[in-house]
Design a protein around this nucleic acid. Sequence first.
DNA 1: CCGTATCCGCAGGGATACTG
DNA 2: CAGTATCCCTGCGGATACGG
Lengths: 119, 119
Amino acid sequence: MSGAIHVDFSQPCPIRDVLDRIGDQWSLLVLVSLAPRTKRFNELLREIGDISKQMLARTLRRLEQDGFVERTVYPEVPPRVEYTLTELGRSLLEPIGGLVRWADTHHLAIAEARKRHSG
Amino acid sequence: MSGAIHVDFSQPCPIRDVLDRIGDQWSLLVLVSLAPRTKRFNELLREIGDISKQMLARTLRRLEQDGFVERTVYPEVPPRVEYTLTELGRSLLEPIGGLVRWADTHHLAIAEARKRHSG
DNA sequence: CCGTATCCGCAGGGATACTG
DNA sequence: CAGTATCCCTGCGGATACGG
């Protein structure tokens, strides 16, 4: 049963490094949005809904720099830019899926714990 | 397989809610520190190393409110306070473990991607 | 259409001093 | 030992205007 997690907290710490990236407000949402297929900038903007285009741009840049997302520019008029998950990006979807499933299963328990503590 | 992750971005979104908690700078580290066994405040402080005691206190309060950690005070002099993972907290270790393993496996690929992009 | 530049408010988080 | 209170500063993230 995988009861033992060992994390070496000494610098540099891979897990902290990774979480600093996907732990922000938007990265994970973008990754999940790109999971089904390649998408364009405004498509992502509309789908995520409450993200500003600046933050979407910043998030995509970082995901690109970290090798999670590939950016393809088509030199057309009007311009077209497409974003796709790389192999690395797709591989990250698995552990993320575990987290998503956990959240679905247990978010009620969290809500109750909070209510218990505030009430 | 599990290739398809479906996340409903409409409010309230469980996964975003969960990530807002464990996605901060310290929560995950505290959870993992508590994985092997119950620990005391200063013990956690020393083990994590670069966390301030204020942030450790805040983080523990929130983890307690969300039902991940249980706080036990022993009315002694000098005072002794112990922190233990709850059932809920331990259950979260599994998906976290997936993330930790992924980070261990792929952090080199990320480092390379960054170097490629900066160079 | 796809961004960047600029401005700004707010919350996260460090350092330190103090308390029970 | 186990915290709280206070101060301060940085950087995330929103809004808007502008550029290619």
